[in-house]
Design a protein around this nucleic acid. Structure first.
Lengths: 201, 201
DNA sequence: GTCTATAGACCGATAGAC
DNA sequence: GTCTATCGGTCTATAGAC
């Protein structure tokens, strides 16, 4: 046996399937098909796994869905904190935020897990609902935080309330990801840049 | 037997369940739980029906989903045509469009079937996918039509392209319905009125 | 046109071998 | 830690009585 225990660190062998590998596939399926649009068997098949093995990593489907949302939210928060540290200008921050969501959509017009969890909210297990609410709070929270700073810096016009501007931009962001899937690939960036322009005036 | 055939027109009896009754319940379930979030049995139970009876009205689940989207789209188109006939002013039209979607959301923060069908697009049967694409085309099409007229009338600022303004508003509209579900009830109107204000400047 | 009963497939989850 | 096999439940859809 070439791959028996004890030699694993030394052998050139097939990389183990990690928790993150599973979450990668699960998140992609959630973004492409919705949380109720794939089964544990579908996910296992994508990874090249048995359904039983998947249950070893995530005891129940509910745990898996909550974990996908939690990791997505934590990565989003980490990226927003980076952006806040990288640049001080409101519009430069928005450009990076837009680039982040362009990569969320990818080449396959994936939608945001936030939109998925909102549409299917009433069918989600409780832990996933809690994560979904936290995700939306963090999403609009960061945009509000940037808008508030912009107000202080004079980058947001006098009549524009930061809170309202943030919720407007959050809604446009999620809607633009849906719209792009249903129209053509350039829509996401075109609409979001228009949204930014409308914040300048 | 009081309700046997032949007396139905004369008897004061329990109203028959119509195709529209079924579509009403199916649309509400779709808006509240997503297209993959309810079964034929769930729907039958809501109506007080057996699943077999439902299959008599809609041969397959795929037919049902397509019919829900078709009726929703036709009603939307009819309402937009009314609005176009009722008023000539761009902002008056937008106010009525907003009122229409406030009633789509209702008191339970239902989302638009357009958003549902976008999120779950890759799992929909083909006829429902066709209807979904048509719905999004009609949705942004009417807003574009209103914007174009506004441009002619001088109600849209010189630098604002009607096509881009329409897609921006369409995205905000769908996103605001999601955001309202995840935050608080006033959000939909606040965000959409802010979106209208941003079109004035 | 509505019902009960059920076919046949798929679901999430578990047992137990290796 | 991964597998095969399988449990009990639910799914869409159909058969056939009334």
């Amino acid at each position: 046996m070439f791959c028996r225990p004890g030699q694993t660190e030394l052998m050139a062998r097939r990389r183990d399937i990690t928790r993150d590998d599973i979450l990668d596939a699960a998140q992609r399926l959630m973004q492409q098909r919705g949380a109720n649009g794939f089964s544990v068997r579908d996910l296992s098949g994508e990874i090249g796994f048995s359904a039983a093995s998947l249950h070893h990593h995530f005891p129940s489907r509910a745990d898996l869905l909550a974990a996908v949302l939690r990791r997505y939210r934590e990565r989003f928060n980490a990226r927003m904190a980076e952006i806040e540290a990288e640049t001080e200008n409101f519009f430069a921050r928005l450009e990076r935020l837009i680039a982040h969501f362009a990569s969320v959509a990818g080449a396959e017009n994936r939608v945001c897990p936030a939109a998925v969890s909102a549409v299917e909210f009433n069918t989600l297990p409780e832990a996933a609902r809690d994560e979904s609410l936290a995700l939306w709070a963090n999403l609009s929270g960061w945009i509000f935080r940037f808008s508030q700073q912009a107000k202080v810096d004079g980058d947001l016009p006098g009549r524009t309330a930061p809170d309202l501007a943030a919720r407007h931009f959050t809604a446009t962001l999620q809607g633009a990801l849906l719209l792009q899937r249903m129209t053509h690939p350039g829509t996401l960036l075109e609409v979001l840049h228009e949204a930014v322009e409308s914040l300048r005036r």
